[in-house]
Simulated scan of single mutants.
Amino acid sequence: MKRPCLHAICTILNTPGACRLGANLQTGALMGRLTFSQLPGAIMRGTPHLQIRLLGDLELWRNEKLLSSDAWPDRKTCQLLKLLVTFRHRVVATDELIEALWSKLDPYAARNSLWVAISQLRRVLEPELTVRGDSSFILTEPPGYRFDSAGQCSIDVDAFLKQVRSGQEQQLQGKLTAAITAYTAAAALYRGDYLERDPYEEWAIPPRERLRETFLDLLRDLAACHLALGRYQDALSIARRALELEPCRESVWRLVMEAHYRAGEQDQALRAYERCREALSRELGVSPVAETTALHTRILQNPLVPVHAPPAALPPALALRLPFVGRSREWPRLCELLQQVMEGQGQVVLITGEPGIGKTRLLEELAALAIARGARVLSGCGYEIE
Rank of each mutant, 00 (worst) to 15 (best):
I371M: 15
Y232R: 07
I385K: 05
C276W: 06
G22I: 00
R132F: 00
C381L: 09
L13S: 08
P247V: 01
A186F: 04
E330W: 00
R240K: 14
P48E: 00
S251K: 13
V116I: 12
T27Q: 15
P143Y: 10
A18T: 08
R275I: 06
R373A: 05
A370W: 04
A269R: 00
H308N: 07
E246M: 13
A235G: 11
T184N: 13
G22H: 05
S328I: 12
A186I: 04
T292Y: 09
C225H: 03
L211F: 08
K104A: 14
L30G: 00
L25H: 10
I299K: 03
A185N: 11
N112D: 07
K82V: 14
K162M: 14
L161Y: 01
H296A: 14
C248P: 04
F87D: 14
L25P: 06
A42C: 11
H7M: 14
S69F: 09
D70C: 10
L227E: 02
A42H: 01
L80V: 09
R33H: 14
T11M: 10
T214E: 15
L176A: 05
L236H: 08
I351N: 12
L25Q: 08
A42W: 03
G264N: 05
V92A: 02
L366D: 01
G358S: 11
L125V: 01
R298I: 01
P247N: 00
L243E: 03
R122Y: 03
T47A: 02
N112F: 09
W253Q: 08
D70R: 12
A178F: 05
R197I: 11
C248H: 08
G17M: 05
H7K: 12
T293V: 14
